[in-house]
Amino acid sequence: MDIVSAERESRISLDWAREAWDGLEGLALLRAALTGPCAGRIALVSSFGAESAVLLDMVASIDRRTPVIFLETGKLFPETLAYKDELVRWLGLEDVRVIRPDPADLARFDGKGDLWRREADMCCHIRKTEPLDRALRGFVGWITGRKRFQGGLRAALPAVEADPVTGLLKLNPLASWSLEDIRHYRRLRQLPLHPLVARGYPSIGCAPCTRAVKEGEDVRAGRWWHLDKTECGIHRS
């Protein structure tokens, strides 16, 4: 399926999805999406970050063959790469796709590796947005781990939406979950914790643009703290 066909089919399916999955969230929404008419055509996009184990565990409990897309930007913490490998083994995930930036884009725009310092939005674009758009070709939708408690543009997050550019379905099964809900599920399932969480990183992205948060700060205060920026760009409004 080419990207034009994928966009057409997903746009048609959005109204259907909103009606078919109305009121569903969490595991119920995931089960409906991964075992129904869209089975095999929806991917989970995971950063393997601070809260990722919960959603990965839910998906694995339904179908370990679900495609998992991991954006290896080349700027991630070594701890994140090790954590990814640990979770893949722990959960028995069978189709984890490591997606990297186009080498030609890196050579053209970030030859010295310091684009994050000079133009952070462009750095995110070539290292995350463009690679993800390519990786999602052939799918009709994808699953995100965003939650409303994270604030900003996420405060009014619906459980089912569509990407305004590609038209692909976006499912946010944990949209209404609280931080305590996440922690309770992780403890209940005895899931391993990202090693940076214990060092004060409640939200983890690329190493140059992520710092530990201070007491009393928002959970995402350590992301792009030095810029007027709260999202990497893969979640377009």
Rank of each mutant, 00 (worst) to 15 (best):
P131C: 11
E130V: 15
S178R: 09
E119V: 11
L71I: 12
L132Y: 06
L29C: 05
G138Y: 10
C209M: 05
V213S: 03
E9G: 09
L91C: 11
C38N: 10
R89M: 08
A50G: 01
R117A: 14
R100T: 15
F70S: 11
I12V: 12
E25W: 06
W16L: 12
L191W: 01
E180I: 11
F139V: 02
L55K: 00
D22F: 12
L115T: 00
L191R: 11
K75I: 09
K147C: 12
G205K: 02
G141K: 03
R41D: 04
A20C: 07
E9W: 11
S13D: 13
R137T: 11
D228I: 05
L157C: 07
E215M: 04
R187E: 15
D105E: 12
A53Q: 05
R211F: 06
D133E: 14
S5N: 10
K170W: 03
E231F: 00
H125Y: 15
S52N: 06
L168D: 04
D95C: 13
R134E: 10
M122K: 14
A20E: 13
S47C: 01
V213L: 00
L196C: 00
A159Y: 04
V98C: 11
A17D: 00
D22H: 15
C123F: 13
S13H: 14
V68M: 04
G111C: 05
K128L: 08
S61W: 09
R89P: 08
D63E: 09
E130C: 08
